[in-house]
Amino acid sequence: METAFARNQWYVAAFADEVGETLLARTICGEPIVFYRTASGEPVALADRCVHRRFPLSLSQRVGDRIVCGYHGFTYDPSGACVAVPGQRRIPRTARVPAYPVVEFDSLVWVFIGDAQSADPATVPRAPWLAASGWTTVRGLEPLAARYGLLVDNLLDLSHETYLHAGYIGTPEVAETPITTEVDDDAGVVYVRRRMKDVECPPFYARSTGIAGRIDRWQDIEYHPPCLYLLHARIAATGVEPAADGSDPHAFHAEIVYAITPETATTTHDFWLVARDFALDDVEVSRFLADSNRTVVLQDVAALNALESVIAAEPAGCQELSINIDTGGLAARRLLRRQVDA
C-alpha cells in the first residue's frame, strides 16, 4: 500500500475558530505550516520555517499582522515576504517564505497543497450544513497514527460498524444490507448508498431522536477525494417516507462529515463533525452525540493504528482480499491514485 500524497488539492487544515490571534502549527501532507488570522479576519498560511536558520515561525511572535522570528527577528508579512531583518537595511531578495492559498467555507479552513497558481477556491467541496441555520453541529479532531488511505477505506465501508461500533452506531443490519456504488468519473466523486428498512435503531440515534421502535435508516455516502467525506444519514420511524416534493419533515437527518487530511505519510488529521436538524437547542443531545461520536472515532483510531503497525511490519507483496462490501472503497482508492499520479 503506497502513501504518496495527492498534490494540487485542497485539504481541511483546521476548524475556523482554531485559526485566530495565536500561531497554529499544523503539518499537512508533510509540509509544516503556520496558520493565523489577520486583524481584518483573513486566514493566513505560511511555511513554518524561517528562511534564515529554519526556526519554526509558529514558535515566534506576532506583531500586528506580521510574524517576527523568535530566533533572530526576521519579520514576515501575511504574503510571506520578509520585511525586516536584524542589524541591516538590505533585505535579501530571496528572503520570503511560501504562502499557501487558504480559504474558509462552512466553518472549515482549507489550504491548497501544491502549485499555488493552480488553486481555484471554486473547486473546494462544500458541506453547508456545518454553518447553516436550522442545524446544530458537534465536532472534534483526533490524531491518527495511520496513513490516510486506511481511514478512507474505513469510511467507505460502513459494514464495519456492525463489528467495531456495536452498541453505538452498529447493528447487525448494517453489515447485512447490500450497497449501491456509483462513481462520477468526471466530477471525481464516489457515492455509496445503503438503505435499510425496518431495522433496529442503534443507541446513537435512539437516544438523540427519541425514536423508540424500529426505523428506516439511510446511509448515503458522498466522498470527494482526497479530503472530504459526507455521510447523509436519514433516520425515520419505519414506513415514514419523504414527501413527493422531496421535503422530509417527519424524518431526522444527520450530516456526518469527515475531513481526512494527511499529516505525514503515516499519520492523519481525523476531523469529524456531526450536524443535525433535530433537537437543535438540546444541550444534552449535543453532549451525547459529541461523546458518542468521539467514542466511535476513537474505536476507529485504535483499529487503524493497529493496522498501520501491521503494515509497517509486513513483508513486501502482502495481498489483501476484497469482497462486495469493498466496492466503494475500491472506487475511492482508484480516484485517489489518479489524483496522486496527476
Binding site: 447490500p178 450497497i179 449501491t180 456504488t181 456509483e182 462513481v183 462520477d184 466496492t327
Partner: peptide, 16 residues
C-alpha cells in the same frame, strides 16, 4: 457524464 455503477443484488452475492 461518465458514471459507473455497481449494484449489489439484494438477497444474493451478485454484483451488477
Amino acid at each position: 457524464m461518465s458514471v459507473y455503477r455497481i449494484l449489489w443484488t439484494p438477497g444474493s452475492d451478485v454484483l451488477v
